[in-house]
Amino acid sequence: MIRGIRGAITVDENDAYEIVIATGELLKELIVKNNIEAEDVAHVIITVTEDLDAAFPAKALREIEGWTYVPVMCMQEIPVPGSLEKCIRIMMTVQTEIEQNQIQHVYARNAVVLRPDLIK
């Protein structure tokens, strides 16, 4: 079954190092919690809010051993007034046997406000 696995994290500053480190933390937690193998990933979409432009967060995925060939694309979120600032979101499309309600989505730091119902 193909499933979407979501996650989001915030950073304090529009800093290249901080963006890549935070994205890496989020990716690794999604991978571990859902037992994801790179070969099972169709693609990864990473979005950032308009206040983050110091780095491509996809760089974090490229630094994970074995993930070189996973297609990844970065995009900008729609700048809705009042939305969470300095936020990085991930949508990973994965082949998995995990049931929909057993997927472990990850929301970290200030991003916990986005989907408190999904935090386990």
Rank of each mutant, 00 (worst) to 15 (best):
A42C: 02
E37S: 14
M92H: 01
F56Q: 04
M75P: 00
H43Y: 15
E18N: 03
K59V: 15
D12Y: 08
Q95W: 08
A54T: 02
I46Y: 02
E37I: 01
V80Q: 10
T68R: 14
T96F: 02
T49C: 09
I64C: 05
V113M: 05
R115F: 09
E85V: 07
T93R: 12
Y17L: 12
E25S: 10
E39V: 08
I9V: 15
V20P: 06
V41F: 03
E77Y: 01
A108G: 07
Q104V: 12
E65Q: 10
E29W: 00
A42M: 12
T93L: 14
V113R: 08
Y69Q: 12
T47V: 05
R109K: 15
C74S: 11
W67K: 01
A108Q: 14
E25N: 12
V41P: 06
V48G: 05
A16H: 07
H43D: 14
E65P: 00
A54D: 03
M73F: 11
E18D: 10
R3D: 02
V113P: 01
T10R: 06
L27A: 08
P79I: 06
D51E: 10
L52V: 05
R6Y: 15
I88E: 05
I98E: 04
A55E: 13
I90R: 01
P116T: 04
M1Q: 11
I36N: 06
R109P: 00
K86W: 02
Q76N: 05
F56E: 11
Y69F: 14
L114N: 03
E85L: 14
Q76S: 07
I64W: 02
A38M: 07
V44D: 05
N110S: 13
R109L: 06
R3M: 10
A42E: 15
E77G: 02
N34A: 08
D12A: 12
G82H: 04
D51Y: 04
H105L: 02
G66R: 06
D12S: 13
M92D: 04
Q102A: 13
I90C: 02
Q76M: 11
Q100M: 06
E39G: 00
R6V: 00
T68L: 08
E65N: 09
A42R: 12
A38W: 08
G66V: 05
I78T: 13
V112M: 10
E29R: 15
V44Y: 05
C74A: 14
Y107I: 02
D40M: 08
